[in-house]
Design a protein around this nucleic acid. Structure first.
Lengths: 231, 231
DNA sequence: ATTTAATGGTGTAAATCTCACACAGTATAT
DNA sequence: ATATACTGTGTGAGATTTACACCATTAAAT
């Protein structure tokens, strides 16, 4: 007894809010659109989901095609479904976010023609974005901020080896407030998932700081209980 | 330069995970389906979003049509987008949840023919549900549990006037563990958003407990900072 | 060689929060 | 009156959070 689903002129898309951290500043990944509507506008990397791919897979594919980045662990955070959010018809969009280290080596380079370019932009002083992308970004940023309070997601944004001061300024950038140096260090070190290295910072004209690494194995061991409730 | 969106045979739906609390048990709202596929199965109240309504509105409408309940504050919590989650085609579904008091007066009564009946079912010992609804339920339940730790959402589930013991057993049901009575009371009262009433419980064959009310005004005042970060 | 500029790195005390734990009081039913 | 069943209350130990200031180290400038 196979009935038919209704056919609407409706599509799903995904949009990606990708955070990076560079030169003491929190940034997100934007593209310059090369397609109507909103041609030449800045936008979050996003596109339409194919009929035969899951939205999770679509998110990975689309990010790759528009920016050249792949293999990030993106997570869905909200779905935007207002009727008129897209001028050409009914499009609901599932928004994903991820945090990555900005790696000067990896070039940002759109694979498709839909984007003219992809680049990092500081989260402060964002220009107006295409569609409702400003709202999507803001929702994602709030999510990130709240999440930082119970998960050490900051490590995804830093280079493999980092100083405690870098870690702290990342926290300060995300939370948008000053933290106390001594308390911050004490707390971070007390978690036990930071590995102190025998190396020091290079190329600074002041006392060089010790470098640390994030020890994912220890982290997982410590937090597996809390994470098992993850939905 | 109006290009056209692609037309897929794809639709969006919403599914609702509605929690209630009754007789010391946490329950969710289920329907008995009256339509293929999964005719006669139990399922979460859910249906297809119309082309000219936002998903938030769709959630309210659909819940009403399938169960007779309206005016709850539902919140989206996850979107499920696997390719084969629906046997008749590509359907992605946005899952919503809400907490309400089960009110014996309000009858559960489907308005449409799509549901044979709607009823409350304890969250423990849930039968297998239609589609991927068991997974959707589980994700929603995890969300509820985590949320309870930082927001007093429990009050939505209780009658207007309640005893501290009722409040505690609700927490215990959601978190699935015993709590200490003295610590629980101390903590709840310390928040300052419980209003002690001059009334007592009636109709019990033991010492009657004091009744309390949740004071939403005070709550909002106390927590406005934290909530303003809400995404 | 000395100074300057910039950041690195460290401890302590008070206040608050968390957690474990047990028993007398009171309303009702018989 | 007495049995039953739940209400309502306090304390101390330990852990966590917060506020707070100065000397150490390095490279560059003089």
């Amino acid at each position: 007894m196979e009935t038919k689903l209704p056919t609407f002129n409706s599509v799903f898309s995904v949009d990606c809010v990708i955070f990076g951290f560079e030169a003491g500043e929190l940034k997100i990944l934007l593209i310059e659109r090369n397609e109507e509507p909103y041609k030449d506008w800045l936008a979050l990397p996003g596109y339409i989901v194919e009929q035969d791919e899951s939205i999770d897979n679509a998110a990975e594919r689309i990010l790759y095609e528009l920016t050249g980045l792949r293999d990030l662990h993106m997570q869905q955070f909200h779905t935007f479904g207002e009727v008129n959010r897209h001028p050409q018809g009914r499009v609901i969009t599932v928004a994903y976010y991820a945090l990555i280290r900005i790696n000067g080596q990896k070039e940002l380079k759109p694979i498709t023609q839909y984007a003219k370019s992809a680049f990092w932009h500081p989260v402060n002083e964002l220009p107006k974005l295409a569609f409702d992308h400003s709202e999507i970004f803001q929702t994602g940023f709030n999510k990130l901020r709240r999440r930082l309070n119970y998960q050490p997601i900051a490590f995804e944004l830093l280079p493999e080896k980092f100083t405690l001061t870098q870690l702290q300024s990342l926290y300060e950038a995300v939370l948008n407030k000053k933290l106390d140096k001594r308390n911050f260090r004490k707390k971070m070190l007390s978690y036990g998932f930071l590995k102190e290295l025998d190396e020091k910072q290079k190329g600074v004209s002041y006392r060089a700081a010790k470098l640390y690494k994030f020890d994912r194995r220890k982290y997982t061991k410590i937090f597996q209980n809390e994470l098992s409730v993850e939905g």
